[in-house]
Simulated scan of single mutants.
Amino acid sequence: MINKIKNLLHSESAIGILLILAAFLAILFQNINFLSDFYNSFTHYKFLPFPDYKIEGSVHFWVNDALMVLFFFLIGLELKREMMIGQLKDISQVTLPIAAAIGGVLMPAIIFVAINSGNEFAMKGWAIPTATDIAFAVGVLALLGDKVPSSLKLFILTIAIVDDLCAILIIAIFYSDDLNLLFLGLSFIIAIALFLINKANINKKAPYIVLGVLLWFFVLNSGIHATIAGVIVAFCIPLKGKNSMLKSMEHALHTPVNFIILPLFAFVNAGVSLKGIGADQLFGSVSLGIILGLFLGKQIGIFLFSFIIVKLNLANLPKNSNWTQIYAMGMICGIGFTMSLFINNLAYGGSDEFGYADRLAILLGSLISGVSGYLSARFLGKKLD
Rank of each mutant, 00 (worst) to 15 (best):
Gly365Arg: 03
Asn33Trp: 01
Ala279Cys: 11
Leu74Gln: 13
Trp62His: 09
Asp37His: 04
Arg359Asp: 10
Phe305Ser: 01
Asp90Phe: 00
Ile102Thr: 14
Lys319Gln: 15
Gly373Trp: 14
Gly125Ile: 00
Leu363Ile: 15
Glu120Asn: 03
Pro207Leu: 11
Ile302Asp: 04
Asp178Asn: 15
Phe305Ala: 01
Val63Cys: 09
Leu67Met: 10
Leu74Ala: 15
Leu18Cys: 12
Leu106His: 06
Ile224Val: 15
Pro108His: 06
Gly330Asp: 09
Thr255Arg: 03
Gly373Asn: 13
Ser176Asp: 13
Tyr208Phe: 15
Gln299Ile: 15
Ser244Val: 06
Phe42Ala: 12
Pro238Gly: 14
Thr324His: 10
Glu12Gly: 05
Ser366Gln: 12
Asn33Arg: 02
Val219Met: 11
Leu179Cys: 15
Phe73Ile: 00
Pro129Ser: 10
Lys383Cys: 13
Pro51Lys: 06
Met123Asn: 09
Tyr327Ser: 12
Lys80Glu: 06
Val286Ile: 15
Asn313Pro: 13
Ile17Gly: 00
Leu304Met: 14
Pro49Glu: 13
Pro49Thr: 07
Leu186Ala: 10
Asp90Asn: 00
Ser36Ala: 08
Trp62Glu: 14
Ser36Met: 04
Ile192Gly: 01
Gln30Cys: 11
Ile300Tyr: 08
Gly76Thr: 12
Asn33Ser: 13
Leu9Trp: 09
Gln30His: 05
Leu317Gln: 02
Asn31Gln: 08
Lys6Met: 05
Ser36Pro: 05
Ala206Gly: 05
Val210Gly: 00
Gly230Tyr: 08
Leu184Trp: 02
Ile308Arg: 04
Val233Phe: 13
Ile168Trp: 06
Ile291Ser: 08
Ile368Thr: 12
Val59Gly: 10
Gln325Pro: 08
Tyr327Asp: 10
Ala328Cys: 15
Tyr53Ile: 13
Ile128Gln: 04
Lys153Val: 02
Leu215Ser: 04
Tyr348Ala: 01
Asp52Asn: 11
Phe121His: 07
Asp146Ile: 07
Ser244Cys: 07
Ala66Met: 14
Asn258Met: 01
Lys205Ala: 04
Leu9Lys: 03
Asp146Gly: 01
Ile202Ser: 02
Ala131Trp: 03
Val105Gln: 01
Pro49Asp: 10
Ala226Glu: 15
Ile302Phe: 11
Ser306Glu: 12
Ile32Gly: 07
Phe267Asn: 00
Lys382Ser: 03
Phe42Asn: 03
Ile85Gln: 07
Ile332Val: 15
Val94Trp: 00
Leu384Thr: 10
Cys166Ala: 14
Leu274Ser: 05
Ala26Lys: 00
Gly355Gln: 09
Leu296Gln: 12
Ser13Arg: 02
Phe342Ser: 05
Leu294Lys: 04
Ile209Gly: 01
Val63Asn: 05
Tyr327Arg: 06
Ala252Met: 15
Ala142Asn: 08
Gln30Asn: 11
Leu179Tyr: 14
Asp178Lys: 14
Ser340Leu: 09
Ala160Gly: 07
Gln87Asn: 08
Leu367Asp: 00
Asp385Lys: 05
Lys199Leu: 13
Gly284Ser: 09
Val69Ser: 12
Ala270Leu: 00
Ile224Trp: 05
Thr158Gly: 05
Ala114Ile: 14
Asn198His: 11
Asn243Tyr: 02
Gln325Trp: 08
Ser187Tyr: 04
Lys6Phe: 07
Ile32Ser: 13
Leu19Tyr: 10
Gly276Gln: 07
Ser287Asn: 07
Gly301Thr: 14
Gly139Cys: 06
Leu67His: 09
Phe342Ile: 11
Ile159Cys: 04
Ile75Thr: 09
Ala279Trp: 09
Gln30Arg: 11
Gly104Asn: 09
Phe112Ile: 00
